[in-house]
Design a protein around this nucleic acid. Structure first.
Length: 511
RNA sequence: CGGAGCGUAGCGCAGCCUGGUAGCGCACCUGCUUCGGGAGCAGGGGGUCGGAGGUUCAAAUCCUCUCGCUCCGACCA
């Protein structure tokens, strides 16, 4: 008879469920500025964990952090034709540097119009390239390996908290290399960093692969992505890594003198992941009681809720909890006693909705017996019933770290089974693909029938042929996600062109 | 920016058709009783009904405009 902690379920209405999890999980809310979000302390705590873990990996692979301006001169963006084309429609532009008071109303001061408008960065290839042009003179300056943590703005039509917001936070890596091989190795190295990070830190299994030409970053020669499967079967692009060839180097004069004394253009790369990852975590691990956070990114891993009764004995319970918290912290665990004067049942459910991995409830009897009672958020219920476990306090403290490891592993395993069990291979024609997805035309609003991804052989068509295929897929709300790495020689024929297949690609609905 | 729907208390909603000056559940505050678990009873606080105009003796309700949100489409990390 036990009720759920949320007002809606994944099955009833997945998009609404997502919003409720974000709100009730205290992650973020919409702001007075259209399309922008306020990230609340709990959501920000998750982002801080993501930053800390990923930043370490970025540094371990030889990169240095720095910071470039938020504003980019419009002329910079205009230099790379494809880049302009790709971003022109979604840029925020600063045109004035002063307001004036006109009859009690604030208006733009026409005399304060900027000679050259400034773009609020949608990404920083151009302004970083401008610096690279000055920093790189010799082959001895290469490779140049830079990263920055920043906010960027893309004026999106439709926004959803974390998944697509007008302003979002990310890290963007930018590197310059002497040749294609070195730049490509960098591109793949960072893709692998993302894959490993997503799986081991976010417990989010992904498929790493190369994007088809029509899904490339504006100005890139090759774009690679990691794709994750959400619980509604849709794909989420969780990270990208681009080999930019010499396009930006040519547009911006990033040149070096080789050992042979020849002047050559650099080969550049860029790669990034954003706050969108948090949306991915929510849709990968959330359940009908709210968020379930992997311990590695949970701002608080173990939350201790004292069962207070407004009696003198409360003091002993709080002391017991505080001592326990201290012990756990000494072991490097992010523990918290929630002693707020709020009904304990309320506190329990609010931590459930926020997805704290382990929730302890400590009452007088635990104190006198030297025990703890706890719940695992990843396996909160057996059927409908909430499951609590009991242990001696000493045993709990001794095993706390491995309990967290176990939760991390179990969340990953659950998601991995879902991903691997829902990629359908073996279809021989587009009609089969169409039939597979076709049955779910009407179910976008409600959860509807779950449809996973389809893996099919194709001949890697380009140009107009690819455009036509993309349009055909679009009619079914489908996109090509990527061509997974490490696949063997593709067998059979391309399901679109009938030509001998070159590789397999994943087709899915996507965010 | 197009199509559809919706804006009434923190959240979820009723009231609108048939205008009469705002209500329910949860949450919140106080008290008492409970309490190894999402408690009961009693009392209470909180809304210029998204905003601006208009019609009217009177507007949450009718009309016009506007802003915002959600879903769908186009675009996209």
């Amino acid at each position: 008879m036990s009720k759920r902690a949320l007002s809606t379920s994944r099955e009833e209405n997945f998009p609404e469920w997502y919003q409720v999890v974000v709100r009730d999980g205290d992650m973020a809310e919409t702001s007075p500025v259209r399309g922008c979000m306020i990230i609340k302390p709990w959501g920000w705590g998750v982002w801080e964990r993501i930053q800390a873990e990923l930043d370490q990996r970025i540094k371990d692979t030889g990169h240095e952090n720095c910071y470039f301006p938020l504003f980019i001169p419009m002329s910079f963006i205009a230099k790379e034709a494809e880049h302009v084309e790709g971003f022109a429609k979604e840029m925020a532009v600063v045109t004035h540097h002063r307001l004036k008071n006109e009859g009690g109303k604030l208006v733009l001061d026409p005399e304060a119009r900027l000679e050259e408008p400034l773009i609020v960065r949608p990404t920083s290839e151009t302004i970083i390239g401008d610096a690279f042009q000055r920093w790189v003179k010799s082959y001895r300056d290469l490779p140049l390996l830079i990263n920055q943590w920043a906010n960027v703005v893309r004026w999106e039509m439709r926004t959803r908290l974390f998944l697509r917001t007008a302003e979002f936070l990310w890290q963007e890596g930018h590197t310059a290399h002497a040749d294609r091989a070195d730049a490509m190795a960098e591109t793949m190295r960072m893709l692998e960093v993302y894959r490993e990070f997503a799986e081991s830190v976010l417990a989010m299994p992904v498929i790493a692969g190369e994007k088809p030409a029509n899904e490339r970053f504006p100005g890139a020669d090759n774009t690679f992505s990691i794709e994750a499967m959400m619980q509604d079967g849709k794909a989420l692009q969780a990270g990208t890594s681009h080999y930019l060839g010499t396009h930006f180097a040519e547009a911006q004069n990033i040149q070096f003198q080789s050992a042979e004394g020849k002047l050559e253009h650099c080969h550049t790369t860029s790669w990034g992941v954003s706050t969108r990852l948090i949306g991915g975590v929510i849709m990968t691990h959330g359940d009908d009681d709210g968020l379930r956070l992997p311990p590695k990114i949970a701002p608080r891993q173990i939350v201790i809720v004292p069962m207070l009764r407004d009696k003198p004995e409360d003091a002993a319970v709080i002391d017991y909890c505080t001592a326990l918290e201290k012990e756990l912290k000494a072991k490097g665990i992010r523990a918290l006693v929630d002693a707020k004067p709020v009904k304990s049942a309320e506190k329990r459910w609010s931590w459930v909705r926020r997805g704290a991995p382990v929730i302890l409830e400590i009452g007088g009897r635990d104190v006198s017996g030297g025990n703890v009672t706890y719940m695992r958020r990843d396996r909160l219920r057996d059927g409908d019933k909430v499951v609590s476990h009991a242990k001696t306090r000493d045993a709990f403290v001794a095993e706390a770290a491995s309990l967290l490891d176990d939760i991390q592993a179990s969340l990953f395993q659950e998601a991995k089974v879902r991903l691997e069990g829902n990629i359908v291979a073996g279809m021989k024609s587009f009609d089969e693909v169409s039939a597979y997805f076709g049955a779910t035309e009407t179910d976008d609003e409600a959860g509807g029938t779950f449809k996973g991804w389809v893996e099919v052989p194709w001949a890697r068509p380009e140009g107009g042929e690819l455009e036509a295929i993309a349009d055909k897929l679009k009619a079914l709300k489908l996109t090509i996600r990527n061509a997974p790495l490490g696949q063997g020689k593709a067998a059979g024929k391309c399901i679109f062109t009938g030509k001998p297949a070159k590789e397999s690609i994943l087709i899915a609905r996507a965010y």
